Measured scan of single mutants.
Amino acid sequence: KVLVLALYDYQEKSPREVTMKKGDILTLLNSTNKDWWKVEVNGRQGFVPAAYVKVL
C-alpha cells in the first residue's frame, strides 16, 4: 500500500472529494489522473489535488 503526506490543508468542495489537514498520512488508491488522486483518509475515500500531497 502506498502512503502520501498532505502538504497543505484541503477542504472538500464536492461529495467526491475528501478533507485533509497538513501532515495527515493518507492511503493512495489511484494516481492515474495527474491532477486529482484518489485517497483514503479517516475511513473515507475521495479525491484530493495531486499537487497537495507527496508520496512517502
Rank of each mutant, 00 (worst) to 15 (best):
K1T: 08
K1P: 13
K1N: 15
V2W: 10
V2P: 14
V2R: 13
V2L: 09
L3C: 05
L3A: 10
L3T: 14
L3F: 14
L3D: 06
L3P: 03
V4M: 09
V4Q: 01
V4P: 00
V4G: 13
L5E: 15
L5P: 01
L5W: 10
L5G: 03
A6N: 01
L7Y: 04
L7E: 04
L7W: 04
Y8G: 09
Y8Q: 13
D9P: 07
D9Y: 05
D9M: 03
D9E: 08
Y10C: 01
Y10M: 01
Y10F: 09
Y10K: 01
Q11D: 12
Q11S: 10
Q11P: 08
Q11M: 14
E12R: 10
E12M: 10
E12K: 11
E12C: 04
K13N: 13
K13E: 14
K13Y: 04
S14V: 06
S14A: 15
S14C: 07
S14H: 08
S14R: 09
P15Q: 15
P15H: 13
P15S: 11
P15G: 13
R16V: 14
R16E: 12
R16G: 15
R16H: 15
E17P: 05
E17H: 08
E17A: 06
E17S: 06
V18E: 01
V18D: 00
V18F: 15
T19H: 06
T19I: 03
T19W: 04
T19F: 04
M20H: 01
M20G: 00
M20R: 00
K21F: 12
K21M: 11
K21L: 11
K22A: 11
K22E: 11
K22N: 05
K22Q: 15
G23K: 02
G23N: 09
G23I: 01
G23H: 07
D24K: 03
D24F: 04
D24R: 02
D24G: 04
D24C: 04
I25D: 01
I25L: 09
I25E: 04
I25A: 04
I25W: 05
I25T: 08
I25R: 07
L26K: 00
L26V: 08
T27N: 14
T27W: 13
T27Q: 15
T27S: 12
L28I: 04
L28A: 02
L28P: 01
L28V: 11
L28W: 02
L28N: 01
L28C: 04
L28T: 01
L29I: 14
L29H: 07
L29K: 06
L29G: 02
N30H: 10
N30Q: 14
T32F: 13
T32N: 12
T32W: 12
N33C: 06
N33S: 11
N33H: 13
N33V: 07
K34I: 11
K34H: 12
D35Q: 13
D35F: 11
D35G: 11
W36F: 13
W36Q: 03
W36N: 03
W36Y: 11
W36P: 00
W36I: 03
W37P: 02
W37S: 03
K38C: 08
K38W: 13
K38Q: 15
K38V: 11
V39Q: 00
V39C: 05
V39W: 00
V39K: 00
V39H: 00
V39D: 00
V39F: 01
E40W: 05
E40M: 08
E40R: 07
E40P: 00
V41M: 10
V41N: 13
V41L: 10
V41R: 12
N42A: 13
N42K: 12
N42D: 15
G43L: 09
G43K: 11
G43W: 05
G43E: 07
R44I: 09
R44F: 12
R44A: 09
Q45A: 15
Q45W: 08
Q45L: 11
Q45M: 13
Q45K: 12
Q45T: 15
Q45Y: 10
Q45I: 13
G46P: 01
G46W: 02
G46I: 03
G46A: 03
G46C: 02
G46S: 02
F47W: 14
F47N: 05
V48D: 00
V48H: 00
V48G: 00
V48W: 00
P49Y: 02
P49E: 01
P49A: 02
P49F: 03
P49D: 02
A50F: 02
A50W: 02
A51Q: 13
A51V: 09
Y52R: 05
Y52F: 13
Y52Q: 05
Y52P: 00
Y52N: 07
V53C: 05
V53A: 03
V53D: 00
K54Y: 12
K54F: 15
K54N: 08
V55Y: 13
V55Q: 11
V55D: 05
L56Q: 10
L56G: 04
L56E: 06
